[in-house]
């Protein structure tokens, strides 16, 4: 979308007066809806709608051999696909740069073992481990993609059930793996440390959280902070633009504070969710 100067000035003035275009304050989020278990044959899934940003995440699990230099760790892979539904520019390979950017930042955010412990995905050291394939589908981009994606991924991982391993034995070179087929033997993942990303945009003199698509266009700089249990796991720049050191520190502080609150809100919503209520895209 393209904005004219008058629109940009209007948005700028709104931010200065702490009254954005949609009536929010600088630190307010737009309404969010999250739905889990939406893809029935994936091990875990979630759909998050943040105003008009729509993200669908599915988690699949495979048995794999661990990396030789990390024999007791499982694997976690992110794959982002920008669907052409979001904008015609994503047709074919148009959305690839954005997709690589988001999946790289997610891998960075989840790299620390405090964020996600890969050791829990080990089945047999050096031989077999679980590989989690997190597939993210961007259906609509209405601004603030990083936040929506990180929250959806966290919800999907919370919903994921890893099949229980009944027995694993090694016989010469062959590994015999016996996986339980009963649903009750599935183990949920520990997502208490999974990071939540917050985008902080500098518009004019003030820092704003959860920018809409139009606000992103008027921002002079953007910072994305991934926070896990109050600690920063990744900081990256969302767009070009320089910041004064004090503004940088203030934005980081704001990001951490907001991320902590978001995390609490998300976990509360997930835990109080009603049991399986299949709605999907029909509402």
């Amino acid at each position: 979308m393209s904005l004219c100067e008058a629109e940009k000035t209007f948005i700028l003035h709104g931010v200065e007066e702490n009254f954005r275009i949609d009536g929010r304050e600088r630190e307010d989020y737009r309404p969010m809806e999250v739905e889990i278990g939406i893809i029935s044959h994936a091990f875990g899934s979630a759909r998050l709608r943040l105003a008009n940003t729509d993200v669908l995440v599915a988690v699949k699990i495979e048995v794999d051999t661990p990396y030789p230099e990390k024999p007791s760790q499982g694997k976690l892979d992110f794959f982002v696909d920008c669907s052409a539904n979001a904008t015609p520019d994503f047709e074919g390979r148009g959305g690839e740069d954005l997709a690589t950017g988001i999946s790289n930042s997610l891998s960075d955010a989840y790299r620390s073992s405090k964020a996600f412990d890969l050791k829990k995905l080990c089945i047999m050291k050096g031989q077999k481990c679980w590989k989690l394939l997190v597939d993210i589908l961007l259906l609509e981009c209405g601004g603030n993609l990083y936040d929506a994606v990180s929250l959806a991924v966290k919800a999907a991982l919370w919903n994921t059930r890893v099949p229980g391993v009944k027995s694993v034995g090694i016989d010469g070179k062959n590994v015999e793996l016996n996986v339980s087929e009963r649903l009750n033997d599935c183990v949920p993942l520990d997502v208490s440390g999974a990071p939540v990303m917050v985008t902080v945009c500098k518009i004019g003199e003030y820092c704003v959280v959860d920018p809409s698509a139009a606000e992103e266009k008027c921002s002079s700089a953007a910072l994305v902070v991934a926070v896990s249990q109050g600690n920063i796991t990744t900081v990256l720049q969302g767009s070009a633009g320089s910041l004064h050191p004090t503004t940088l520190m203030d934005s980081l502080g704001l990001g951490v504070e907001v991320a902590n609150q978001l995390n609490i809100a998300l976990m509360e919503t997930l835990q109080s969710a009603p049991p399986h209520f299949d709605v999907g895209f029909l509402k």
Partner: peptide
Amino acid sequence: QFSMAVFSTGERKRRPRG
């Protein structure tokens, strides 16, 4: 443009389209 999500089939697809 026809595109299948990587998680749409029983066995995970490597590429959604192309």
